[in-house]
Design a binder for these strands. Structure first.
Lengths: 156, 156
DNA sequence: ATATTATTGGCATAATCTGCCAACAGGATT
DNA sequence: AATCCTGTTGGCAGATTATGCCAATAATAT
């Protein structure tokens, strides 16, 4: 990871479909070495993939909420069953292990309040070993960035 | 948004660099109409852009935390100054308006605890009109999906 | 059944990707 | 300082892909 790699990472976060030629120009390289660097970043796992960013509402998911969940049982089995269920639930977009009052924080999307209720009743509340759930709805988005502020300095 | 558009949206969320030819094959269309649909989805704002997904740690940002912030002053001016500052702070990746105890929830990344401290002291705490801040650190990631579970049914 | 509109598939051209090789730069050794 | 060595770069050629246009097809309404 040198200065050029950082530029590449930043540029591809801002536009994941940049052509290699445009990217090369942006970072001040000719296409061949540029492509090689991109492939290396991919192989090293620095770049994990590419994705289209979509308008949630336009796709029929106007509702976003965050749930903070505390488990009553922290045995390995309970944790694994919980996390396995999270993994297979498509409406759960993110799930982090947290410090503080809750064990997990989930970001959940839904098509409607009805769909949300179904999800909570049929999936979330049936997760094994839940002690408490605290939910907050997002009713507006101030910012949604996809660009890590990768410093253009320092080797890693 | 018909069934085919939904397939396109899903496929491009899973791999934003799919070739138009591969995409066309995946959704059961020939390349020309497939490309046209993609361009329409982009023009309509359903597809808002493309992005490379990167490994935060490999890029030097091992720390993620969520901050829930409550404002003491909710005047339009205070809100705008707050949100403007959020917008220009690169370490704040997301910011939602929330129901419940906090007004905002921020997702923040940092390169180190020191950098985090600097950020809090020099940027966050100087935001105008803050009543309280509650921070939780993410010390693990269970799931991080980028794919809205776009239903293959229903026109919108 | 017919007219009309929207969508599709195929084709030709232009742009892009990608692997290979020679040239170049930087560092270590003599 | 000259030489070797390693890693990176730039350019070129063939293969792949994108893109605009046109006729053909499908869907809808009259």
């Amino acid at each position: 990871m040198d200065r050029i790699d950082a530029k590449i990472v930043r540029a591809l976060q801002e536009d994941g479909r940049l052509t290699n030629q445009d990217l090369a120009e942006k970072v001040g390289l000719s296409p061949s070495p540029c492509l090689r660097r991109v492939r290396n970043l991919e192989a090293d796992g620095v770049i994990q993939g590419y994705s289209a960013l979509v308008d949630q509402k336009a796709c029929g998911y106007p509702i976003t909420c965050f749930m903070r969940i505390r488990l009553s049982v922290h045995s390995e089995e309970a944790v694994q069953r919980f996390e396995a269920k999270i993994m297979e639930t498509e409406a759960v977009l993110d799930c982090y292990l947290m410090t503080g009052g809750a064990d997990y924080q989930l970001r959940i999307v839904a098509e409607s309040l009805d769909a949300y209720e179904q999800l909570v009743r049929h999936t979330i509340q049936r997760l094994p070993g839940i002690a408490s759930i605290e939910t907050s709805f997002a009713y507006g988005v101030v910012k949604k960035s996809r660009v890590l502020p990768v410093k253009l300095e320092g080797a890693l």
